[in-house]
Simulated scan of single mutants.
Amino acid sequence: MTASIRAFFDEATWTVSYVVYDQPGGHCALVDPVLNYDAKSGRTSTRSADEMLAFVASERLTVQWILETHAHADHLSAAHYLRSKVGGLIAVGGAITQVQGVFKALFHLEAEFATDGSQFDHLFRDEETFAIGTLQAKALAVPGHTPACMAYQVADAVFVGDTLFMPDVGTARCDFPGGNAHTLYQSVRKLLSLPEETRLYMCHDYPPAGRQPQWRSTVAEQRAHNIHIHDGVSEADFVALRTRRDASLEMPALILPSVQVNIRAGQLPPPDANGVSYLKIPLNAL
């Protein structure tokens, strides 16, 4: 079967979210939705999520799943907001518990913050199958960028999260807590062992000068042209390249606010006695 896919590009964070569905009037999943955040004012808005909701309404879709490929470090998740509007199960890879443990300590979160993944409705196991209406889907563990990275294979398409970018951009960084370039190499090769015509959908695009944002490629295109990990690149060469590149990268602009929200499945921290939610900025910790 062929999955129908509608992409939504957020220019502020270079993030692509998706609605994947079986047919108009059928069922869908929302993948990696964005909660808009203004770092200058600390204000959130639901503009991007509302665009997804408008499409869902126009196609008369029932939301079954809200799928997170990982706890993103570059944008806040709108999963909690979307579930409050249209339902669906918020799901992520089961290794999110490792990520929660690391960042609970880093941010010195409230004692009540659970690190068992219970903020999410479902924790996927590697190779676990599920359905989106009449579409058959499978969760594929692809750690390396983070321990909890999960790709979602839906019929003939795979949503790869940050594991891969467009061929002229390469692959995800591996210098976040729990990241590992050796592991990422194995995860990418796992994806690139799928049939060559498999459609691959990116979570981000950072286009080189002169190219407009894109977010869809194929296994064949990645194997032939990915600048970091095309066919013929050994694990040792990839790890050396990735390690050098990661050492030159700055932290993502929104890593501190986004991770605190995303390990809570998109819910803001519990408000203080004055009714206001606060994010923490750990000084000299990263």
Results as ranks from 00 to 15, higher is better:
237 D>I: 01
153 Q>K: 14
179 G>F: 11
142 V>K: 08
201 Y>C: 05
154 V>T: 04
28 C>L: 04
72 H>G: 05
280 K>Y: 13
184 L>V: 11
79 A>M: 12
248 S>A: 14
27 H>W: 06
37 Y>H: 15
125 R>C: 03
256 L>E: 10
24 P>F: 02
8 F>I: 00
186 Q>S: 13
45 S>K: 10
218 T>S: 15
168 D>I: 02
18 Y>V: 00
213 P>R: 06
133 G>P: 08
169 V>S: 10
156 D>C: 10
34 V>C: 10
189 R>Y: 06
114 A>Q: 14
205 D>L: 04
251 M>N: 04
47 R>S: 07
163 T>P: 08
176 F>E: 03
280 K>L: 09
179 G>D: 04
73 A>C: 04
87 G>C: 13
131 A>G: 04
197 E>N: 14
71 A>N: 11
266 G>H: 12
262 N>Y: 13
274 N>T: 02
32 D>G: 06
43 R>Y: 08
200 L>G: 09
81 Y>V: 01
72 H>D: 03
268 L>D: 09
98 Q>H: 08
239 V>G: 07
143 P>C: 06
91 A>E: 08
12 A>R: 05
177 P>L: 00
173 R>M: 14
8 F>W: 10
157 A>W: 01
73 A>Y: 12
163 T>K: 09
227 I>R: 00
28 C>Y: 02
235 E>Y: 02
113 F>I: 09
192 L>E: 11
48 S>M: 09
188 V>G: 04
19 V>Y: 03
196 E>Q: 14
260 Q>R: 15
283 L>N: 00
272 D>C: 06
7 A>P: 13
21 Y>K: 04
179 G>I: 07
31 V>E: 08
154 V>N: 03
221 E>F: 06
218 T>I: 11
282 P>V: 04
72 H>V: 02
196 E>L: 15
139 A>M: 11
184 L>Y: 00
55 F>I: 04
286 L>Q: 00
182 H>D: 02
12 A>I: 00
118 S>Q: 12
235 E>K: 14
112 E>G: 02
2 T>H: 11
34 V>A: 08
47 R>Q: 13
276 V>E: 07
245 R>H: 12
260 Q>N: 12
173 R>D: 15
186 Q>I: 07
214 Q>P: 05
233 V>H: 00
154 V>D: 10
96 I>S: 09
207 P>R: 03
146 T>F: 01
147 P>M: 07
256 L>R: 15
55 F>V: 10
158 V>H: 07
5 I>E: 05
226 N>Y: 01
266 G>P: 13
115 T>H: 05
46 T>G: 01
8 F>R: 10
183 T>K: 15
77 S>F: 05
214 Q>C: 03
108 H>S: 12
117 G>Q: 03
269 P>A: 08
202 M>V: 05
278 Y>G: 01
161 G>R: 13
220 A>G: 11
44 T>K: 12
202 M>C: 10
204 H>L: 03
229 I>G: 05
112 E>L: 09
137 A>I: 10
281 I>H: 04
47 R>F: 03
113 F>E: 09
269 P>H: 12
214 Q>E: 13
123 L>D: 00
146 T>C: 06
269 P>T: 05
117 G>M: 04
67 L>A: 02
159 F>A: 06
119 Q>K: 13
272 D>Q: 08
175 D>N: 14
208 P>R: 06
36 N>A: 03
63 V>C: 14
2 T>R: 12
144 G>L: 14
64 Q>M: 02
282 P>K: 03
